[in-house]
């Protein structure tokens, strides 16, 4: 987006990192929802569909987490690194002006 419009609308806080994190969390809750739904379904047709969707959600989750790891926005292997990133993000969110 145009940097000036971004600042004007307060959208500069909504960085790619935030969007990617949102996508990751959605994918994660999606997988959990699917797992619940699959074990409730009995009709083969519905079960097959939900299983397929579960696999697709798993692929999506994997893709996003790999992407975020490559970008350095997600440190699954380095807790300390992840904690400092978290603290940084917390402060960014806390210091955001309320529109």
């Amino acid at each position: 987006m145009n940097p000036i419009i971004e600042t004007l609308t307060g959208m500069d806080a909504l960085s790619d990192q935030v969007v990617a994190m949102d996508l990751l969390i959605s994918a994660k809750s999606g997988i959990r929802n699917y797992a619940m739904a699959v074990t409730e379904a009995g009709t083969p047709e519905i079960k097959e569909m939900l299983t397929r969707h579960l696999v697709e959600a798993l692929d999506m989750h994997e893709q996003i987490s790999t992407y975020m790891t490559e970008k350095g926005w997600y440190h699954a292997w380095d807790t300390n690194e992840q904690i400092s990133l978290d603290l940084n993000n917390i402060n960014t969110a806390l210091n955001l002006p309320t529109l």
Binding site: A27, K28, I31, R32, Y34, A35, M36, V38, T39, K47, T51, L54, L58, H61, E62, S65, T69, A76, W77
Partner: peptide
């Protein structure tokens, strides 16, 4: 079991753990 494996999958990052869990998930279903 299915629910637990699915949750575990969303928490794992290493490829071999993921393939293992994925196979077990399919078997579980």
């Amino acid at each position: 079991g299915v629910r637990n494996i699915a949750v575990a999958l969303t928490e794992s990052a290493s490829p071999d753990v993921r393939t293992l869990l994925r196979n077990q998930l399919m078997q579980g279903i």
